[in-house]
Design a protein around this nucleic acid. Structure first.
Length: 490
RNA sequence: GGGCCGUUAGCUCAGCUGGUAGAGCAGCUGACUCUUAAUCAGCGGGUCGGAGGUUCGAAUCCUCCACGGCUCACCA
């Protein structure tokens, strides 16, 4: 995209003038010894007189984000990865080099050396005694006062958003520490992190429309994975007892404040445990992460304060429905369930089985109320073709979903490890698909074969990382926690 | 995909029932050696998202299109 306006032309002109005077506008390395917030923290309480008596020399590299020029002296703020600090250019000190200031613009990246001092207003500042242009910036940055607000530009040109909106920089730094805390937690519990295929012949482990791609050399179509589940369970067959994978899934569905086509998912499996164990484990995981990142279990989200202090209520799905006035008579009767739903203005697709109807009702009348952490447990088994059913009630699965802030954060179950039953469940799904239900699992013969070798009883769980990050950063849109969210082309 | 809202200078925004397109910041020229939204004086900067239409005349009214936001539907 060639786009020339007056402001860019002026900067290109300066760049050429710099070249002519022997200054390379795109420099090479500069090893700064300090960072902005490091200096600000370290000398926070050091008085002006102390800095005068015992000079502190330092060096910095960063972007000029503001400039107040007095001709023979100038103040600027320099921003690096850690924050910003004021610097002071003075002609008496810089001599000839002071002329170079005229060719600098806001946005340029410089390296500098100098001495710390405090201004009249007591701001810790670097008095520059030498500096070098490291990168000439050709595009003007957004205005200092209002910043960059245009949401479209913020997402499309995230680099600009990150330069001018410090809270965005912080959010993504926090995302990184959240993911690190999760990995630390699993490390401490002796899990191993694994990587399983993102390109799959059969997009299994969840119900979603996949992306399709093509491998030219093999001459086959492949799907981007919608979940790693079936591969992780193959690893349980292979003898690993505790595995996790934290990586991208891809679903070819709508985009919204809660959905991006590619999103990060944590999935983990532990042998010889069941879903009851996982509920306590999940409480431990989430509270560990929240406490590590935020230092508290009472976190603000939107208008609410969410209290993560365990234990969290564990409510059977059908009980939750009854508490909201859904008559239990419909729980075993598809026609009555459908009639009740439609009488209550809940849209039900033609041919939806009983479990899905109950799920629709749940999403409509229960889910919006689940602000504080709540485990909803024991879903209809037909919603959970990969989960073990309850011994005392085969219509229900040993499954839970964790809801926080009216959103599903985690989904887990005792894994079905009976290959004969798993085959029947797949076949039922395939049949449903043949009858027009697109929301079904696919048959995966190799997965059945793996189960036939014997998979230990196990519990498995998936946690949507983007939504967890939203929760812990008080973000209302998934696009605020994904660096480059999917948008239509410009 | 449906509904509602938005798109004007590099950025943030005004622009009334149609009558020559504005401000602040940023930029340019000059002054100024402790400013921090620096200050003071002067100057430049626009395909008003795109294409049609109505009109003597459209940023403004109408239609279509594009992109974005919110929301509903599907999902995590």
């Amino acid at each position: 995209m060639e786009e020339i306006n007056e402001l860019i032309e002026q900067r290109i002109k300066k760049l050429e003038e710099l070249r002519q005077s022997g200054i390379e506008p795109f420099g090479s390395s500069f090893y700064a010894e300090n960072h902005a917030s490091e200096l600000l923290n370290k000398f926070d309480t050091v008085k002006r007189e102390t800095l005068e008596a015992n000079p502190v020399l330092c060096s910095l590299a960063g972007r000029i984000i503001s400039m107040r020029d007095f001709g023979k002296a100038a103040f600027a703020h320099i921003q690096d990865a850690t924050g910003k600090i004021q610097v002071y250019f003075k002609k008496d000190i810089l001599g000839e080099k002071h002329l170079l200031l005229k060719k600098l613009d806001i946005g340029d990246i410089i390296g500098l050396k100098g001495r710390l001092f405090r201004t009249k207003t007591n701001e810790l500042t670097v008095e520059v005694n030498d500096f070098i242009l490291l990168t000439k910036s050709l595009r003007p940055l957004p205005e200092k006062w209002h910043g960059l607000k245009d949401i479209e530009i913020r997402y499309r040109q995230r680099y600009v958003d990150l330069i001018v909106n410090p809270e965005v920089h912080q959010t993504f730094a926090k995302r990184s520490t959240i993911i690190k805390a999760i990995r630390d937690f699993f490390e401490s519990k002796d899990f191993i992190e694994v990587e399983t295929p993102m390109m799959q012949l059969i997009p299994g482990g969840a119900v979603a429309k996949p992306f399709k791609t093509h491998h030219t050399a093999l001459g086959i179509d492949l799907y981007l994975r919608i979940a790693p589940e079936l591969y992780l369970k193959r690893l349980l067959v292979g003898g690993y007892e505790q595995v996790y994978e934290l990586n991208r899934n891809f679903r070819n569905e709508g985009i919204s404040t809660k959905h991006n086509p590619e999103f990060s998912m944590l999935e983990f499996y532990i042998a010889y445990r069941d879903y009851h164990f996982l509920m306590s484990f999940t409480e431990e995981l989430i509270t560990y992460v929240a406490d590590t990142i935020l230092g508290t279990l009472k976190i603000p989200y939107g208008d609410a304060i969410i209290n993560l202090t365990p234990p969290w209520p564990r409510i059977p799905m059908l009980d939750a429905l009854m508490q909201k006035g859904v008559p239990p008579e419909i729980f075993n009767d598809r026609e009555r369930a459908k009639a009740w739903a439609e009488a209550n203005n809940i849209e039900i697709k033609e041919g939806a089985p009983l479990g899905k109807i109950l799920d629709e009702i749940f999403k409509e009348i229960v889910e919006p109320e689940l602000i504080q952490p709540t485990f909803i447990i024991d879903h209809p088994v037909e919603l959970s073709p990969l989960a073990k059913s309850k011994p005392d009630n085969p219509a229900l699965a040993e499954r839970f979903e964790l809801f926080i802030a009216a959103r599903e954060i985690a989904n887990a179950f005792s894994e079905l490890n009976n290959p004969i039953e798993q085959r029947q469940r797949f076949l039922a799904q395939v049949e449903a698909r043949a009858e027009g239900d697109e929301e079904t699992d696919w048959m995966d013969e190799d997965f059945i074969r793996a189960l036939e070798y014997g998979m230990p009883p196990a519990a498995g769980e998936g946690i949507g990382i983007d939504r967890l990050v939203m929760l812990l950063t008080n973000s209302q849109s998934i696009r605020d926690v994904i660096l480059f969210p999917q948008l239509k082309p410009e």
